[in-house]
Each structure stands twice: as structure tokens, then as C-alpha cells.
Design a protein around this nucleic acid. Sequence first.
DNA 1: TAAGTGTACTATTATAAATAATACAGCTAT
DNA 2: ATAGCTGTATTATTTATAATAGTACACTTA
Lengths: 127, 127
Amino acid sequence: MFDIDLMSRVPIYEQLYRKVVELVIKGVLTEQDKLPSVRSLATELSVNPNTVAKAYALLERDGIIHTLAGRGSFVAKPDAALIEQHLLAEFDTAAEHALDAGISRATLTERLQTLTEPTGTKEDNNV
Amino acid sequence: MFDIDLMSRVPIYEQLYRKVVELVIKGVLTEQDKLPSVRSLATELSVNPNTVAKAYALLERDGIIHTLAGRGSFVAKPDAALIEQHLLAEFDTAAEHALDAGISRATLTERLQTLTEPTGTKEDNNV
DNA sequence: TAAGTGTACTATTATAAATAATACAGCTAT
DNA sequence: ATAGCTGTATTATTTATAATAGTACACTTA
């Protein structure tokens, strides 16, 4: 579920951050879902509790999760607009790079139509 | 020309690598163009010669540039197909992430049409 | 009260990028 | 030939930061 790559150049705490964001985006984690405790997740991943705590702190800072002292961390009300904005920005960047390199808009448009539909990660409610 | 960000998390040698690739893609650097010498570029960037040498070694390894011992480093025959493949792969990834998040294909297609034309980096031969 | 929660703090270790200082071999122009 | 460029290679050191380790505190729940 929260599998990470210890060999990656991107820090573990950042991998965890992205993983949670991804799970929220895909609807696997929804509002008020409880995240694993800092200590339990650290144990599961064979990682230091501080590392998990750092990831949770960043998620809290960015409003992805919220924390109740002594109770745990929970998924906050997802800000769909924010997430969409982020994904569109990444899309724009990639598209602009391609355009700058001389790849035609038509080529990208065609390509866009051929991409596979999303896989059933969102509980298959997209029929 | 080869400006880099010393504060970035991405290593200087990798920034240099990407910069050269970008300049080749945009046509600013073309076949047989001579790159600055390891020592001169290192001085210009206030960076250690070893760092520039590492970037050049990677560029050589990937066939972006070639080296004549004692003469210097020169831009190799650009493999346009390879570059295009790389850019399209990045485009696909960004698009798929957006689709996975529930953003519609139509939204992305529309967005693609509104993106600005490439700026005049390619010597304005794109009229 | 006991056990679990997040948080905070300091100190230490591990890793990798970057630096520093040389040395070597090939080319080029004088 | 020689001086001054080129790229390359090597070793050691410094620096930055991620990750670990250990502890303590305040809160909540059973």
C-alpha cells in the first residue's frame, strides 16, 4: 500500500508524501480515513518514525491530512480544485516542452486520444 | 547560456546535462558546435572542473556529444527520434496522471489547443 | 491508569555531491 | 621542440542532507 523505494534519490519522506497524495487523488483514501500511526507505518516500512512523522507534518502543512492530538492522522476534505490545478500544470509543462522541440500540436492531440483509460483504481465507479 | 541553480536539489552536473540536451533540442547547439572547455565553463560557473567533466562524460556516454582528445567536446549528430521519443513519453505520463485523476480527455484536448506557441528560441525559423 | 497517538528535540551516522589538488596524454600553434 | 591548450583519471577532503537513534512531553482512549 505504502511501498517505497529505499534506493531512489527522492527522499523517503517525500515518497510517502506523494504516495498519500496519489491515493487521495485516486480515491483510495477518502475523507476521514485514518492513516497508519507514525510508529506502525515506520515499523511496516522498516524506517525511522521520524521519517514518517516528517511526511505527515508536510501533509498536514499542505492540508492533505489533519491531525487530532492523541488520536491519529486522518484524510482531510480533498481539495479537488487544488489537485486538478497541480496535474494540469504538469500536463502543460510536458506539452510545452514537446511543442518547443518542434513536435506539432496535432501530433500531441492525436496521441492524447490514444492513451489508455484509467485503470480501476478508483473503485470502478467510472463506467 | 549555461546558467544553473546552485540551490536546486538536482545536482549541478545533471543540470548541465539537461541544459545541453535542451539547447540541442531547441537547435541552439547544432552538429559539430564546440562546447566550452571543461576548465573555462567551470570558471564561468564558479564550479569545480570535475563537476563539468562529469556532465560531459554523461553526455558522451549518451551520444549527445563526442570528444576529440586534446581538441575539445563537440555536439554529435542529434538523434531527433530519440529526443522526440523522450518528450512524448513525458507527455504521456503527465496526461495519464491527469486522466487517472478523473480529468476528462476533452479537458486536456482543449487545453492543448490553448497553449502558447514556442518562443523564438529556435532562431525564429518557425514562421 | 496503561497504552496508544502526534510532536519536539538533540545527537549521531550514512550517503552523495562538490571541492581540491595533481597527474597524465593528446592536440595545436608557435 | 615547446608551451599551452584540450579531456581524463585519481585520491582525499569537505559539505549538505537524509535518515537514524534515543528520549521526552502532552493528549486521548479503553
